[in-house]
Amino acid sequence: MRRWLPYPLLTLSLTVMWVLLHRPSLGHVLLGGAIAVAATWALARLQPDKPRLRNWLAMPQLLGIVLYDIIRSNIAVAGIILQGGRARRTSGFIVIPLELSNRTGLSVLAVIVTATPGTAWVEFDPAHGRLLLHVFDLVDEAAWQALIKHRYERLLLEIFE
């Protein structure tokens, strides 16, 4: 089982993707499944480090938080842009110390931070676990640090480490 299907979840999602691209039929399920199995064998040859998911229950919670935050910051950033230069606004860089060191967790955090308008991931120093962010509306530096650490990093630590 392990040898034939090294990545069961990836095989399943590749098959679903193939069926979505075509009209759903038994033939496409079989063809997509065969292609997905071949693709995961090719991936297994590359020997990536396998992400371990420790806490499945925290994932929908994280997804909900992120979708809500994206809507909220979309409205905030759109408001700032529409006000033009009248509103006094400071933007700047902040440094955040991170405990998260898992590579998959860090890439998920990068997707979250960049997909949210208003924050942009700039640089990460893996030796000291420090992250450099650029924040569009920097009112309170400590509040942004607390947001990243408590809202996202806590859940990511639960899921990945």
Binding site: I70, N74, V77, A78, I81, T114, A115, T116, P117, G118, T119, A120, H134, F136
Partner: peptide
Amino acid sequence: HAPTLGSS
């Protein structure tokens, strides 16, 4: 930060 509005 601005193009993220369009891409999200």
